[in-house]
Structures are given as C-alpha cells and as structure tokens.
Design a protein around this nucleic acid. Structure first.
Lengths: 172, 172
DNA sequence: GCCAATCGGAACGATATAGTCCGATTTGAG
DNA sequence: CTCAAATCGGACTATATCGTTCCGATTGGC
C-alpha cells in the first residue's frame, strides 16, 4: 500500500513544473532535477514516462525541454501515478482480465475489488496539480469531497489494534 | 499503487472466516487454506500476522484454531491491510519520522501527503468484512464509470460514516 | 554542415517481497 | 503422568519488481 518512489518523484517534479511556469514555458529535466533534488537519470526516466503518457510535451534538441500538455487544474494525482506505475489497481484481478490469481473462481471478494479500487482512485483523482502547487495544504476541499470546504471527518472506526508488533517491516 | 499479495490473501481469508462462522467458532489455518486456495504456509504466515495485530484470537494445541476478535462489522479493509503490510502510508514521509527522502526540505508536496493518505485510508476503512462477505457485490456488474453507480451503504458501521468519496465520477 | 544538448530506451544491480521449511509450545488422550 | 499430535511462531531462500545508471537516436543552433 505504498507508492513507488518513481511516482513520488514524478509528483514532485510535476508540482515544481506547475509552480514554475504554470505549464506554459519549457523547462528541462536537468534544471528540474537540480531544483527538486531528484537524481538526474531518474528525472530523465520520469520525463520519458510522463511524455509517453501524454502529460507533458517534450521538445528535443538544444534548448529543448518539456511543458505540461494540459492546464495544472486538469492534471490529477491519479494521472501522474498511472503515468509512472501503470493503471491503478489494488489487485491483479482488477487491472487486466488476463491476470489470474490462484484463487480465481473461489474468490468471493473479487467482485468487491473494483468498487474499492475506484474509491481509492477517486481519492487520488480529486487532487489536482493546482492544489499541490499551493503552499498551504488545503484540507482536501477541491475535488475529493465534491463539496466546498468539507472538513474530512477524523475517521473514528473502533479499531484499537492493541498489539501492534510490526511497526515497520521485518527489519532484522 | 498495488496491494501486496499477502494482504490480498489476508482479505480473502478473513472474508472466508467471516462467512463461515461469523467469527464465533474457531477455524484452523489448514481448513481455511484448502477452502480459499491459499497455500498452507502462506496461510500460516498470515494467521501469525493477523493474530499479532489483534484481529484474530488464536488457540494453540490440538483442535485449536482462530476466530475473529471483533465482529465483522467492525473490521475494515484498512485494518487487515495494516495488519499485514504495516501502517498505510503512500510515501515514506507520511508513515514514520525516519523519512529518508532526499528531497526533505525542498519538498513542497510533503504537507499535502497526509491529507491524501487519509483520504485513501478512509476509502479502505469504509469497507467492512460484512460487506465483503456478502454474495451480491456492490453494483458494478452493469458497467464501470458509465452511470452513477451508487454503493448502497446497507452494512455501514454505526459510527460516523467515513467520508465516502465521490461515487462514479471518473472512468476507470 | 558540424556540434552540442536533449530525450528515449535498454541493461544492470539492489531491495523488498512471496513462499517454504523447521522448531517451540500447548493441549488432549491414554 | 506421559506421550503424541496439531498448532503457532520465527527464520531462510528464491523470485520479482523496482530503482538507478548508462548509452544511443534525434534535433536545434551556430
């Protein structure tokens, strides 16, 4: 349930690009890497992925670079993540139909996964680049709730989780 | 952005346990593995994780097994995922304080991650074992993204409804 | 026409994961 | 009370994906 580092870096780079020129001027991967701190080769790889996905327009040659293909308000977190990691799919059975897990027919929860997957994707699709470029972190008001300034409830489901033994992972 | 296979199997096993005895009787890992199709060693590993997290109560010795510690309506997908994978954290900077992100101070999107992370977690916390144990899934068979598919919250927890995201707005 | 800077893709290495095995503990029966 | 069986619990190994790096193709400027 963790985002890949590539996607994380892609979000940072896209946000930086949106903040810099609003997606109108061209910036190169080198300058953006120096600014954001992302390693240059990784930044180049991300630029390739993002351009392949159609999120940015790349210009080759001397003085080239890239710019956002769409206004920042129309680019969401889900777009960036899908551009880097592929389609958002919590399980294999949601993404491609040809992916068959061993459970297959006896899996009773398979019909439920698309619903959950869509809910998660909607949560990510509700965050736009414009929101991310803002300094003050808005309380997720713009797109996710559908409402104006709906304060997200604190989510108080009685799940005490008393004996949490594994805080991180099996770090030996 | 994909769920680990262990978490997927854990959800299947927990759902099967909830469907079988409603969390009242004891079942062993062997029988559940045979029923769900999960490999037995993997099922044993998952039982260990789930019992460590406090989701199930294990009884050792001959004729032992495990049963759900809480009613199925109070166990959510987020609980199961956190029991297997650890805390739900899209990025490293959200989870623990030991963020080793190279961007660190220059990261402008870091303040936004907790909000997004909570939104995703809420989406997972809104699905209970009772919902997953239901045969008839939520209305998805008709089509994804086409119409306003509304999930009927017939099995929701009596506690505050965890901010259901907008339903059926983004095409998958 | 030449050079230089950039994007694009491919290969290598590393980390984390998935799966499997064996041992310790406990309980029921004899 | 002893034995035996079944269970949980942790550790090891193999695999796969991810992250990083490097090199080539392309294009614009001079």
């Amino acid at each position: 349930m963790r985002l890949s580092s590539l996607a994380d870096y892609a979000v940072v780079m896209m946000t930086a690009a949106a903040r810099h020129c609003g997606g109108l001027a061209r910036v190169n991967a080198t300058g953006l890497a120096q600014e954001t701190g992302v390693p240059l080769p990784t930044a180049q790889k991300l630029v390739s992925r993002l351009s392949s996905a159609g999120l940015i327009e790349s210009t080759r040659g001397t003085g080239g670079g890239f710019r956002l293909s769409r206004p920042p308000a129309t680019i969401t977190l889900a777009d960036i993540i899908e551009a880097v990691e592929g389609p958002i799919a919590l399980t294999n059975c949601v993404d491609t139909s040809h992916q068959e897990c061993a459970l297959d027919g006896s899996c009773r929860v398979k019909p439920h996964w698309p619903v959950v997957n869509r809910a998660v994707r909607d949560a990510l699709a509700g965050v736009t680049l414009t929101q991310l470029a803002t300094q003050a972190p808005l309380p997720l008001a713009g797109g996710v709730g559908g409402g104006p300034v709906r304060s997200t409830p604190a989510f108080d489901i009685p799940s005490p989780n008393p004996s949490r033994k594994r805080e991180g992972e099996q770090v030996l």
